[in-house]
């Protein structure tokens, strides 16, 4: 019986795959996208099959999403990651109405209704300002591993204020502040606060309503999430694996297609 459904999310930095049956997630995977999206997609599928001991004919439907969705030749359908995130997060937290996805290339804010339908959405501008890319840039400047940014930022008690929203200018501003003797944690806290303010600005333009959740790779940064809580005044829901919510949503859409 081909009752299994797969979601593949090819992002600009990471690609994700989720395989589900009619009740639960069987396996999921996150891998760097690198240059070849097609190969990345194939590898993800192979990994999902190997890990679950299934064969391609067991899969009822595959939905691809993300900026590289079109390269997934084996997908049965393509959906935007906006719809997929909404679906994925709603399945995990039905109380959520406002979602901010902090991706590598863009950030997105969207509102969903009590049935999980997408009401409004907004993407950050065309540059990397307001996306998680700025965290990568700062991690490099400060020589800190990206996964350590959050914990370090939380140690700050003297936040440096940043004046720019631009990823490129943030780098030069950070370099200036280092030269002035600012501590790493204070710089990070400043970057997190500036990014949080931008993300919340995006959310306010689609209209914030509780509950408020974050998704995407940026949501793994606890310093950023804390800053967002400070800016919004709301507790923020962070999914257990925030990078996977779009792939999960895609898999759920695939499952719905099987059932039809």
């Amino acid at each position: 019986m081909n009752v299994y459904a797969v979601g593949i999310d090819i992002g600009s930095a990471f690609s994700k795959g989720v395989i589900i049956d009619d009740r639960k997630v069987l396996w999921s995977s996150v891998t760097p996208s690198r240059g070849d999206y097609k190969l990345t997609g194939n590898n993800l599928r192979d990994e999902l099959l190997t890990r679950t001991g299934l064969s391609p004919k067991d899969i009822g439907f595959i939905v691809a999403t993300g900026s590289g969705a079109k390269t997934v030749g084996f997908a049965d359908a393509v959906r935007t990651d906006i719809s997929c995130h909404a679906k994925g997060i709603y399945s995990l937290f039905p109380s959520v109405r406002t979602i901010v996805d902090i991706g590598d290339l863009y950030s997105k804010a969207f509102r969903i209704d009590e049935n999980g339908n997408l009401l409004r959405f907004l993407l950050s501008g065309k540059c990397a300002g307001g996306s998680a890319r700025v965290l990568k840039v700062i991690a490099k400047v400060l020589q800190v591993k990206i996964e350590d940014l959050g914990a370090l930022s939380l140690k700050s008690n003297k936040r440096v204020d940043f004046n720019t929203n631009c990823a490129v200018f943030a780098e030069s501003e950070a370099v200036c502040r280092i030269a002035e003797g600012a501590a790493k944690e204070d710089l990070l806290a400043g970057i997190h606060r500036a990014l949080a303010a931008q993300l919340n600005g995006l959310a306010e333009r689609v209209g914030v309503k509780k509950d408020y959740a974050v998704a995407g790779g940026g949501a793994k940064d606890e310093g950023l999430v804390r800053a967002l809580e400070e800016v919004t005044g709301y507790p923020i829901i962070v999914p257990p694996e925030p990078q996977l919510t779009a792939a999960l949503g895609a898999a759920i859409m695939a499952r719905e297609a099987v059932k039809l």
Partner: peptide, 13 residues
């Protein structure tokens, strides 16, 4: 490319 994502999401909505 940038517009496509927004338009597709709007149409899905």
């Amino acid at each position: 490319g940038r517009l496509r994502t927004r338009i597709q999401a709007f149409l899905e909505m």
